[in-house]
Design a protein around this nucleic acid. Structure first.
Lengths: 341, 341
DNA sequence: ATTCAAACTGCAAGCGCTTCCAGTATGCCG
DNA sequence: CGGCATACTGGAAGCGCTTGCAGTTTGAAT
């Protein structure tokens, strides 16, 4: 391993100057900088992260806490974060926060305090008070993606508005008996997203003077399998005259699409289905959705993190989203027979 | 931040003894260890990773290089690795190696050399000579998952045998006209896996005295969409009398299943489909597959890494796999009409 | 009781950088 | 041409820990 001293010596300057030349901090003559850069390049010098961190207090690494790598939304966000950090020369330390309570506690208790990171991006985790406190006590910039959480700077889409937009799309098409696949408090692992989306659905109906029919609301775990099972329940309920479904995630919507095929319910002729997320498979399934561009969310979060979120706290950033209309939604066939068994 | 000195002082010992007590290296009396541990706990002491790394040369962090976080196989492996590392108190530094050549080069040139990690696990990346050399020159333990790569210690399933097993399953059921969805050299982003699987398919046919029909072999990119498109090609080819499909990944197999539904080809009555991987959606789709337990692969890789792979090099570990028969495969209906258009 | 090894402990020397500080050189102003 | 600000540079002091070394104590073996 080449040390800074060797580079400095090769360039005919002191280690101090070499350090300044390479880091860009402080004054260095153009000539010296040139020689140092060349020597470093020639010798293949790479700064020792430990030494640099210890001396400067900066680690050039960001911690990312994320719940479930299998869920498309989360690994998309992670991709976005990773991309931006790598481009900026930052490392990414991954904390995969699973349902293992003990491990989770350990991550908050010890891992984060090792000061290996300059900041922490928390993706879609519902934090309890103790965890929030741990994060705050780090004295590091923290960004919560999928908030908002009042105690910490956060970025989030307006989940209620998003779901309302999805429901509005169906309502505007003329649907009136609309089913919902989402979650309730029991699924609030991530900032009440399930609750807030459900609320958005109900509000949308209210604005059309429709009372949500509890029998048309199904809970699921945001996965394809969960959506499939929930949709089967909805399709199977006799006489509900449902013509459309709003699913709180694209994965569940895809599940609903698969269930429809299995039961011979044609989409969009007999049933319109709309999801939320912008899943990569949406195109294949011709799924109408509200795209929340998770990769971009990752980019944005990382960029903000790199700017250190100087703005004191409670920074709450609203993220964009957009309706993408594909083939899974259409005006309801009022004359058609009830597709549900 | 509480320093080791404070802990040592609180426990009435020197920093050296406190360090030994907490790390477990060297001799410390039970009494001293007890007092140090208590003091550390009470003060909330957590070792500074930078200082510890600088002094000891060990960082308690493992780097993981992985290509595509969206692909289920990769994020499964990552989950497994992460789980094992976290349980052992290790951090995971994620290097998401995308198709961006410049970024990729930078990761190998600079990131790895920062000595932030004690070892590197490379998941399913086809390394060129220069990259292999960079890895070797690190002087760190490296494990390649999805090898084998002769130059570096690696772990892999026997891709040829796996695909042969899949094809054998169909052959044993009586299928003779079998299609294949996989890849050729053009898709060899990861250790010739596409090529080796294709070879396994061809060998299996040979053992039954069947020559592979080139028109029944389709290339795809291992995604659901890719499999869907490839399967449509196969189903659409007139007069091929194909009764079964081997897909080199579950995602492509699922694509084939979806295509079958869309074209009215019934599975398994008219068409048997088998995949490879053990995808979590396999259950929903009743997909027969060869499970290679990627999460366990992650565990195994991480465990080996933690044991530092003392054994010099060229450690090549064969990973297990198993056939999981579900509903997507059955004996061919010899009397049935050709399902293909 | 004597000897010796092993257990234990603290001192101090780093690990490889960054950065404060003080000193020298340079440029520009009046 | 003196004076002062500014650019540049190197010395040296850490950053917070680990560990070799040497000294002290203990226990067991003779």
């Amino acid at each position: 391993m080449v040390s800074l001293d060797e580079v400095a010596h090769a360039a005919g300057v002191s280690a101090a100057t070499a350090s300044r030349a390479l880091s860009g901090r402080g004054h260095v003559s153009a000539a010296a900088r040139q020689r140092v850069t060349e020597a470093a390049e020639r010798l293949g010098y790479v700064v020792s992260s430990a030494a640099s961190t210890l001396a400067s207090g900066r680690s050039r690494s960001i911690g990312v806490m994320i719940p479930d790598l299998h869920r498309w939304f989360f690994n998309s966000v992670l991709s976005g974060i990773s991309d931006t950090l790598t481009r900026s020369g930052y490392d990414l330390t991954l904390y995969n926060v699973t349902r293992d309570v003990q491990l989770r506690r350990e991550i908050f208790r010890a891992f984060l305090h090792r000061r290996r990171v300059d900041g922490v991006i928390v993706v879609a985790l519902e934090l309890d008070d103790w965890e929030t406190k741990q994060l705050q006590e780090l004295g590091l910039p923290v960004i919560v993606l999928g908030g908002p959480l009042h105690e910490l700077p956060s970025m989030a889409i307006d989940d209620q508005a998003v779901t309302q937009l999805a429901a509005d799309h169906l309502l505007a098409l003329g649907h009136r008996k609309i089913g919902y696949i989402g979650g309730d408090q029991a699924f609030d692992a991530d900032y009440h997203v399930p609750s807030r989306r459900r609320q958005g659905f109900i509000s949308a109906l209210h604005r059309y003077g429709i009372e949500a029919d509890e029998s048309l609301v199904q809970s699921a775990d945001f996965t394809i399998e969960g959506g499939y099972a929930a949709a089967k329940q909805l399709y199977g309920a006799p006489g509900n005259h449902m013509t459309g479904i709003v699913a709180a995630s694209d994965e569940m919507a895809i599940g609903a699409l698969l269930a429809a095929r299995d039961l011979g319910v044609s989409v969009p002729q007999q049933m319109s289905v709309i999801g939320i997320d912008g899943h990569e498979l949406g195109h294949l399934f011709q799924l109408t959705t509200v795209d929340q561009q998770p990769v971009s969310q990752g980019h944005t979060a990382a960029e903000h993190m790199l700017r250190r979120v100087e703005s004191d706290d409670k920074v709450t950033i609203d993220l964009p989203y957009s309706l993408v209309v594909r083939g899974s939604t259409a005006v309801p066939a009022h004359d058609a027979p009830n597709p549900c068994v």
